[in-house]
Nucleic acid binder design. Structure first.
Lengths: 202, 202
DNA sequence: AAACACCATATGATCGATCATCCGATGAAA
DNA sequence: TTTCATCGGATGATCGATCATATGGTGTTT
């Protein structure tokens, strides 16, 4: 069994910050003052700092020594960069291992359901899960961790809100991929790569 | 000009830790106790914690909530994972942009010189610089930052010491690559990929 | 007015102390 | 002996306070 651990305070704080960034409670460029946030959450400065560092690693906030952190001003270029790297990573993943097709199908089914129900959050969630499955199948833990560090889910939410991008985690787009996995298409790497990159802004 | 900033304490501490890990002053599996290290360096616990978090991101130390950090037990599998991801990232980089061939040549020249002088550190440094040049040429800042987060230089040092790998940043291996860049070989992506992967343990 | 030195404030960086958890030692009960 | 509850030390997590830097305002000099 997985060991059960109490979530440190910094993790809770990170969730609050992520929530705020996704929901747009903080605008791009806005300062995030450690002590102010600590006071609002009724905690001390230390765990807030640690949470901010984690968000910095996700490139959601930026900071310079002695100048504090601010919400990053996301641009279409940033988004394009994420898709380019994702495309490469997922192509690499398919070279290293193949996911169980049944699992992929399950994700696509949930994606259909979410789209039918009009649930944006669920569409993002299951669309990301589909790709996470592919990456996990690589069997390369480092690859998984690098892919996770891209913060695909958060970036998707942010870009939908800021750039009014349509939720492109379209169930139909994924069908051909599932079929390609099923027949173990030799072009699979390129297919995945192009599938991901197709979502990038021009 | 680049703005000049005073290096925060945590950066100095990180350097000390990196030095220790590279030189083998700490053995794999060894605990790194925040307060002990803080006392030795005559600083407080806070910046030590922050430095440890950064090393954790480089996967040089591992830690669990309330259980502290310890030097990671590096395995050949870890090393293989790094090379697999690197190979993918650098292949992606060559698809996005081409480095100035002159710069590549310069790195190879320095690599030759380092090998001739028998300087292990310089061989690693310039070998890494060659690949960094390729990644930088992608023009994708995220790709660069992801590649840097692999800690290629540190891992190379550690693996040479722990696994007695020969310094494989061999100048001769790089010549064909430079030529391929020069003639803009359409197979460049695959060449880079295979070049990197060739260094991975079986 | 422009350039500069100086000071006040806000706030990041660091500190020393305290709280909370983990883990091994100890001993009682089965 | 084995199992389990309890205790205490070591140490990570968090706190509240202090130190140090960046920034903007004010007055002085040119």
């Amino acid at each position: 069994m997985e060991p059960v651990v109490r979530q440190p305070l910094r993790d809770e704080i990170r969730k609050v910050l992520l929530d705020g960034l996704i929901s747009g409670r903080w605008e791009p460029g806005e300062r995030i003052v450690e002590r102010r946030l600590a006071a609002e959450l009724q905690v001390s400065q230390a765990p807030v700092r640690e949470a901010l560092r984690e968000l910095e690693a996700l490139r959601l906030v930026e900071s310079a020594p002695n100048r504090g952190a601010r919400v990053r001003g996301f641009t279409l270029d940033d988004l394009r960069e994420v898709y380019q790297v994702r495309a490469g990573l997922e192509e690499t993943a398919t070279r290293l291992g193949r996911p169980p097709v049944a699992a992929l199908r399950a994700h696509v089914t949930r994606l259909h359901a979410a789209a039918a129900a009009g649930s944006l959050d669920d569409q993002v969630r299951h669309g990301v899960a589909f790709h996470r499955e592919i990456v996990a199948a690589s069997g390369n833990a480092l690859l998984v961790s690098v892919w996770e560090s891209l913060g695909v889910e958060v970036w998707t939410h942010v870009s939908i809100r800021l750039f009014r991008m349509r939720p492109h985690e379209n169930a139909a787009d994924h069908e051909p991929l599932v079929e390609a996995f099923e027949r173990d298409d030799p072009q699979l790497g390129r297919l995945i790569h192009d599938h991901v990159l197709a979502y990038a802004p021009d």
